[in-house]
């Protein structure tokens, strides 16, 4: 029974990873850009949500309305930050020399943004973890001897809705078709009337939105935010994305859940200290044996835009 409970916990943890992994996989699949600011945006949304709530913003609202609005403002900050990142990283992808490390340019500037944003938050609010004044995370629901924490169940539903909405958007909407066309071949997409400069920022807005939502869900579920919270989640999400296959939406979903399960089962059987080795070991093995992951196709990462 304890084992089944761990599986349930793993699924719940996996749902946070899924949201961040989807953000990673979108930027890689469409733009071939490993965006290292994603964990920072996740942290930024949660920290800003906390600080808005702590300042007593939004103005004078009473308890049940205050923290969701504060979190919504946090998400808005994350989206704005993501657009700033787009302005300074992705616009400069084309280089003069065209050598084999050119794809590193946006990656390197996203590392720069990681340093800037994380340390600005540290300067503003200190390095300590802060308690998020959300609803109690201890509300539990007991079904057949298994415990489900209610905020986590709600998060799971929210994540499922986000992923389904995103899948619909990519498949059927005009903007989704544009994004898929850019992923296939940016030059051809441009010739056929997709305005790259207008469509690319959409990817970054989605990134900010996904990270912001993931950060908010994390803040509500675990009741704690800190400037370091993005690092662990970010690395697990990367592992999930690679496991599922770069650029694949459903791969990121499956990979995120698998990583959540691996983490919980490793803790159950071997203790918390071995998590780092097993999660990254799984990732390294995947890259060596089947680099395209479970669902990816091997066209990703071979020079786009």
């Amino acid at each position: 029974m304890l084992l089944i409970q761990q599986v349930v916990n793993g699924l719940m943890l996996g749902s946070v990873y899924v949201t961040v992994a989807v953000a990673f996989t979108l930027t890689i699949g469409i733009l071939n850009f490993l965006n290292f600011t994603i964990p920072t945006l996740f942290m930024l949304a949660a920290m800003m949500g906390w600080s808005f709530a702590a300042w007593g913003l939004p103005f004078g609202l009473t308890e049940p309305l205050a923290w969701p609005l504060a979190l919504a403002l946090g998400v808005a900050v994350a989206i704005a930050a993501s657009l700033v990142v787009e302005r300074f990283t992705f616009r400069y992808l084309r280089t003069k020399h065209g050598d084999s490390t050119e794809h590193a340019i946006p990656l390197v500037s996203s590392l720069g943004f990681l340093l800037v944003l994380e340390n600005l938050v540290r300067i503003g609010y200190g390095s300590d973890a802060q308690r998020f004044p959300g609803p109690s995370a201890d509300l539990t629901l007991s079904v057949g001897g298994l415990f489900f924490r209610i905020p986590q169940v709600i998060s799971l539903v929210v994540v499922a809705l986000i992923v389904l909405g995103l899948a619909w958007m990519m498949k059927s909407s005009r903007i989704g078709r544009g994004l898929r066309a850019i992923a296939e071949n940016p030059d051809a997409a441009g010739i056929l009337g997709v305005d790259t400069r207008r469509v690319v920022p959409v990817v970054f807005m989605l990134t900010g939105l996904l990270c912001g939502l993931a950060g908010s869900l994390f803040a509500v579920n675990y009741g704690e935010v800190s400037p370091q919270m993005g690092e662990d989640i970010g690395s697990k999400a990367i592992a999930g994305m690679v496991l599922g296959g770069l650029g694949s939406l459903w791969g990121a979903v499956a990979g995120g859940i698998v990583i959540g399960l691996i983490e919980m089962l490793t803790i159950h059987f071997f203790g918390a200290d071995t998590v780092q080795a097993t999660v990254w070991g799984a990732l390294l093995l995947t890259l060596m044996i089947r680099p395209q992951g479970l669902f990816g196709h091997n066209a990703i990462g071979k020079g786009k835009l």
């Binding site: 300074f88 400069y92 390197v108 720069g112 340093l115 800037v116 300067i123």
Partner: peptide
């Protein structure tokens, strides 16, 4: 570190 990060971004631009 903020200055370092900003220097990195400026270099890439």
């Amino acid at each position: 570190f903020v200055v370092l990060g900003a220097a990195v971004i400026a270099m890439m631009v």
